[in-house]
Design a protein around this nucleic acid. Structure first.
Length: 589
DNA sequence: GAGTTTGAAACT
DNA sequence: CAGTTTCAAACTC
């Protein structure tokens, strides 16, 4: 192609789109990149001030780089990145050049893209720099106009581009925490929902190569895509094969695996051997759902994933070579299929045993309570008789009140008040209005404010049989003391079990983390992204019950928690700080 | 590093 | 809107 167009601008071929049809009226829009035009395009306009903004060895115009303030749309991925000081030398081979925006390599700090445009003058969307709304800086492009020196031409090109596609500079990857769940990405931190705005149109790559924008952006293909033979969906065996080996961040392996997947070498077992096009073309019959249904991907992905997981290697660290930081807009679209740390710990027989224990405990509690009540009642009656015989009516009356208090505090539903339901223990707990919670439930809730749990646990009999009424009726309104006591005991035992499970999970997690760090350390510098980051706790810990059913206040527990595994429940009580201590003491006694 | 493949962008 | 061309990145050898 005539590359000698260096001096002529715009070249005839580009005239139409970039100059000729660039009427003044469009200029009226005054799209001024330096002022953060397209405000809607950038959630948070970023000022990029590279130390030196220049296109590399350019025979062309832009003489000298000058510090620039660019506030054009900048893809989120690029925002924080700063080019390493030494840029004079091509930092990496062309093979590792990022394509779609500044991509993370192995989750490490992003490199700024460096285009190599030759024919587009970096004024078309072919140019990644231009597409991402940034000036070329240290690129290897030829005849670059995407710089300050050619701001006018650049602006025109932007105009033309916007003319063709008003969303041209919008980030291609949309993410929203509450968006459609087409491309749910399970990360260690939870689910995020990201998808390619336009979707890809891959035909031959199976969406498992970086040709695919979705894959490159590290997200799943969505219903927006029109790809063929897509293997980039959750649960795809081919896809999982890419990320679930022990090959960590080895991109070479990934590519190799991708090739194998595309050619059918992988994914030959079970359902996975279904026609390759499980997603789009010919996927309409999948579970009788149409592709149009946004839930389709979700369903397909997850159902398949659920089948696959058990066979997933217990690789300590889901290896995602291109995992992004979980907090960026692309939202750490880690291709990790989350597998509970407790997956191997909780056995069905354990649950049965737990249930048996709880039943026994419940029975014992009822019996104990019954005995206590009898003795207490007897005592009270004796006192009463004494008073009646020897005291005035007045004195008798006051004593009755005292006794009543005694009963309430020591007996009646010991779980209720004695269970530690002093107000102080409930600080910070948002109680659902209009529905009294049983003390045991409240104790379990601790400072958990997840209303989902509250809604789900209490009324549905999570507390066990006979607890429904107790959980809804306050003491003195029909709740039997026996039920309350049973509930309290059962809940506390159950809590202990949960705590121990947590401990197990944490130990397992610790192992995984250290392994992960070791792995990452071998490959890269700081494990600043990826799963490692997911360990940053924020108060509620993702764990085996991270679905919101049960959450236990995160307390950074040291390794010595190992001892608590074999310890009795009492030592675990501290894991649920808000659990009433008086109740605790009583339990011990 | 050269050549090929790929898919987005641009164009018709 | 579909088909074709152009382009640059990804990939292969």
């Amino acid at each position: 192609m005539g590359e000698s167009e260096g001096s002529e601008f715009p070249p005839k071929k580009l005239q139409q789109s970039e100059t000729a049809d660039f009427p003044a009226k469009k200029l009226a829009r005054q799209l001024d990149f330096t002022q953060g035009v397209l405000p809607e395009l950038q959630p948070s306009p970023v000022v990029v001030t590279p130390a030196s903004a220049q296109c590399q060895p350019q025979p062309q115009p832009h003489p000298q780089p000058q510090p620039q303030v660019v506030s054009i749309p900048v893809a989120p991925q690029q925002q924080t990145q700063q080019q390493p000081a030494a840029r004079a030398v091509k930092p990496e081979s062309p093979k590792s050049r990022p394509r779609l925006n500044a991509e993370l390599k192995d989750g490490t700090p992003k490199k700024q893209k460096q285009c190599n445009c030759k024919h587009s003058r970096c004024l078309k969307l072919y140019c990644e720099c231009f597409a991402s709304g940034t000036y070329c800086d240290g690129c290897n492009c030829v005849n670059c106009y995407n710089n300050v020196e050619n701001e006018a031409a650049r602006r025109e090109a932007v105009e033309a581009t916007l003319e063709r596609n008003p969303n041209a500079f919008r980030p291609k990857i949309a993410s929203s925490p509450h968006g459609t769940r087409d491309s749910r990405e399970e990360t260690g931190e939870g689910l995020v929902f990201v998808k390619h705005n336009k979707g890809c149109h891959c035909k031959k790559s199976g969406c498992l190569k970086k040709y695919c924008e979705c894959f490159q952006a590290n997200i799943l293909c969505s219903e927006n895509c029109k790809c063929m033979d897509c293997k980039n969906f959750e649960g795809s065996e081919e896809r999982q094969a890419l990320f679930h080996g022990d090959h960590g961040n080895n991109m070479a392996y990934i590519q190799q695996a991708a090739n194998a997947a595309i050619t059918g070498a992988i994914g030959s077992s079970g359902y996975a051997s279904l026609p390759v096009s499980r997603k789009r073309k010919g996927q309409e019959l999948f579970f009788g759902q149409t592709v149009k249904d946004p839930s389709f991907h979700r369903l397909g992905h997850f159902q398949q994933a659920s089948h696959i997981r058990p066979a997933a290697p217990s690789s300590p660290l889901p290896s995602n070579p291109v995992a992004r930081a979980g907090n960026t807009t692309t939202l750490g679209s880690s291709k990790i299929t989350y597998r509970s740390l407790l997956a191997d710990i909780i056995q069905s027989q354990d649950l049965k045993e737990l249930c048996s224990v709880l039943v026994v405990l419940s029975g014992e509690a009822a019996k104990t309570l019954s005995d206590q009540r009898n003795s207490m009642k007897k005592r009270v009656e004796d006192q009463r008789d004494t008073f009646l015989a020897s005291s005035t009516q007045e004195r008798l009356q006051s004593q009755k009140e005292i006794d009543a208090d005694k009963i309430v505090s020591n007996d009646c539903s010991s779980a209720n008040h004695e269970g530690g339901l002093d107000d102080s223990s409930l600080d910070g707990v948002d109680m659902p209005k209009g529905r009294p919670m049983s003390p045991g439930t409240m104790a379990l809730m601790c400072d958990e404010q997840d209303t989902i749990f509250m809604a789900a646990a209490s009324p549905n009999g999570l507390m066990g049989h006979g607890c429904d009424s107790s959980s809804q009726l306050p003491c003195g309104q029909g709740m039997t003391e026996a039920h309350a006591e049973q509930e309290r005991i059962v809940l506390m035992k159950f809590r202990d079990c949960l705590n121990r499970l947590i401990t197990f999970g944490e130990i397992k997690e610790t192992k995984c983390s250290s392994l992960a760090r070791t792995e990452l350390g071998n490959e890269k510098g700081p494990p600043s992204t990826g799963l490692a980051n997911t360990r940053t706790r924020t108060g509620s810990q993702q764990g085996p019950f991270s679905n919101g059913v049960v959450k236990v206040p995160a307390t950074a527990k040291p390794p010595q928690m190992v001892t608590s595994i074999v310890a009795t429940s009492s030592s675990d009580l501290k894991k649920i700080p808000s659990l009433p201590q008086n109740g605790d003491n009583k339990l011990k006694s």
